[in-house]
């Protein structure tokens, strides 16, 4: 098994997911089967090959520093469950 039960619990907590014992077991199985499947890639000899993070050879896609403009405030707030004076209202976060 590549992924241990405490690791599943840890990752779930980082993702703010509440899992019950059954779910932890299920995810451990699922994640391990995904990682096991991906392990097939390790069978290929990649000696001397530079790692890439993208499949394309495209690079340097940039834009000039020109203002395009922003959305309207009502669009900006349209997905917010609550807003006040233009701000999005969330439960208090204490630093």
């Amino acid at each position: 098994m590549k992924i241990t039960e405490p690791e599943v619990v840890h990752v779930a907590r980082l993702a703010r997911l509440k899992l019950n014992t059954g779910e932890v077991e299920q995810f451990q199985k699922d994640l391990n089967s995904i990682l096991g499947y991906m392990d097939m890639l390790s069978e290929i000899d990649t000696t001397g090959i530079t790692p890439v993070v993208h499949a394309t050879n495209i690079m340097n896609v940039m834009r000039p520093d020109t203002i395009i403009g922003s959305q309207t405030l009502s669009d900006a707030l349209s997905n917010a469950p609550k807003h006040k004076a233009g701000n999005i209202v969330v439960p208090k976060v204490i630093e």
């Binding site: 209202v89 969330v90 208090k92």
Partner: peptide
Amino acid sequence: EPLSYVDF
């Protein structure tokens, strides 16, 4: 109030 306001 137990609220925070977010400005992006």
